[in-house]
Design a protein around this nucleic acid. Structure first.
Lengths: 327, 327
DNA sequence: CTGAAAGCGCTTACAG
DNA sequence: CTGAAAGCGCTTACAG
């Protein structure tokens, strides 16, 4: 049924060795042009496609990169990141496969089934998982939410997002700040790091501790939060939100509470989702240089796979404030 | 280096055959409880994990399901759908791997590398691709944007979305309708089907042809569109938008143009993205029963894989209007 | 420049 | 109830 290299060999009148040499363009081996052409023609005529399983079994390595995502909704930023990484690695013959870790099955089952050459975690791996993969010869590129000692780790400096938000708000004259945290439990790790950045920057600038309030993605929840902030001894005048969705909720809540943004309350989000600019007023947000991050991530994988490659330099300065009318 | 079934056999003092029988719980083969236990213990002591490559090579089939996504931004609806499908299929020992078809590499390279048992397309496959996969013994579950003769195809009745939107707007007393189309080229196939639904329903109800305008995700673009609609001989009073993002743009554009929603202009979207309810006024939208769709999709894959299984019945009535204040 | 042969790790008839 | 042996399709020393 299946067309194998033996078929191609028979069809073109050479040995399987030669077929393999030709099809893999084995460096160092010289094949007569005529032979080469015959093999190539036979292969395409027969519709030959090498068996990945056999190749993986033989070489002990596949050309698949397994990308493990967190189980919370991905969002356009991560979508774009994956897009870029996929494209970059494709140029090096690697195919990226994405798995949403739905908690349902252990990660181990998955990478054992796929036998990827590398696993890319966009969420931190459990130490045991990382160890098991490494022991199996799989290259592991993990992620950290912040500073991490491991050189082979993708670091998204979440704290600096919080810092940037505060820096921007303070430059606009605000001193009494609040942090609008997301309600979704699954985001807590990220939210905490961003909040840590907000706190650290407030402390550094000698501002009072920021008020921290969880805001649902509903107008009522946000309006209640806004009222709470205004009722404070020192009323909050500016809000750093976990992300754009939370920021949009705060915007809606402020309007519902009769406040004018940004005069009564300034709001800054994170991500620059498409609808951020459609809000009224348009939402100021923290934008991320996803291309640079993706480039770095792809280069990290390649470097980890091939020790002769120079490890890439972590991109600096990937976050920027996109100033709109909400601050 | 790698622990193989031969190691387990040696360690437990049995043959590889027995190891295989025990580990795969081969039905019909009876193994002494003592032997069974010895093998199981040796396997776990050694940390044995079967080689997926060898298994795939041997059996000619893996337990991976490749899910191919379109190259446009996925969005929360598709995210959720994949989540559900992943969970469902995991219960049957299948792992779902997602690939964003970035256009960069031909699909063929990918499924050849992965050798999945099934490929699930959330976007229609090219006929040649589908044929090649089927010929290679891979089960193909494709998608169609609308009615499709193939029984093994996932159908999302895009036209009925448009119909529902019109039906809702007409029930609210509107007769002069517009369709707000997305600017992104990659969405054109979907947008066209939804528009076809809008047109068909207008025709059925004896309404004038809907005005069709492309709307960027910017306030300016939307405001211009809104003004155009108002300047018509018979001014448009209600808009069916391609999705919630476009609808939010129209909302912003209407406000910018000095109109009051829904009194001057009613707007209905599609998807119920989280921020839809945060808009002012909150956005009426078409909601989809993703759970039912995901269940159907997972069952389709299983049925295609195992002919003895009853093919699932296509869920009916998956779309519903979620009425909020924008209509 | 090309071929015969081994072996990657597994499963499964086929004998005992 | 258990074992020896073949073979899935590939690549790669090793001989010519």
């Amino acid at each position: 049924m299946r067309v194998t290299s033996a078929d191609v060999a028979r069809e073109s009148g050479v040995s399987r060795t030669t077929v393999s040499y030709v099809l893999n363009a084995k460096p160092g081996v010289v094949i007569t042009e005529a032979t080469r052409r015959r093999v190539l023609e036979a292969a395409s005529r027969l519709g030959y496609t090498p068996s990945a399983a056999a190749r993986a079994l033989r070489s002990g390595r596949s050309d698949l990169v397994l990308c493990v995502l967190p189980d919370w909704t991905v969002g356009p930023v991560l979508d774009t990141l994956i897009d870029h990484v996929t494209t970059s690695l494709a140029e090096h013959g690697l195919s990226v496969l994405v798995h949403i870790s739905r908690g349902s099955r252990p990660l181990a089952e998955l990478w054992r089934a796929v036998t990827p050459c590398a696993v890319l975690g966009l969420v931190p791996f459990a130490a045991a998982d990382a160890r098991a993969m490494t022991r199996s010869g799989i290259v592991v590129v993990g992620s950290a939410l912040d500073e991490d000692p491991h050189p082979e780790t993708f670091v998204v400096p979440q704290t600096s997002i919080g810092r940037l938000q505060v820096e921007h708000l303070v430059a606009r004259g605000h001193r009494a700040l609040a942090y609008a945290a997301p309600a979704d439990d699954r985001l807590v790790a990220f939210a905490d790091r961003r909040l840590a950045g907000v706190r650290a920057e407030c402390a550094r600038l000698g501002l009072p501790e920021p008020r921290v309030t969880t805001v649902d993605l509903t107008v009522e929840s946000a309006a209640a939060a806004v009222r709470g902030w205004r009722d404070d001894a020192v009323p909050v005048t500016a809000v750093a939100a976990y992300n754009d969705e939370v920021a949009l909720a705060v915007l809606a809540g402020a309007t519902a509470a009769g406040l004018v943004v940004p005069d009564d309350l300034a709001v800054i989000g994170v991500d620059d989702i498409p609808v951020a600019r459609l809000a009224s007023p348009p939402l100021t947000t923290v934008w991320q240089a996803i291309d640079a991050q993706a480039e770095y991530l792809a280069a990290s994988v390649l470097a980890a796979l091939d020790p002769s490659l120079e490890p890439p330099v972590r991109p600096d300065d990937v976050f920027h404030v996109l100033e709109r009318a909400s601050t």
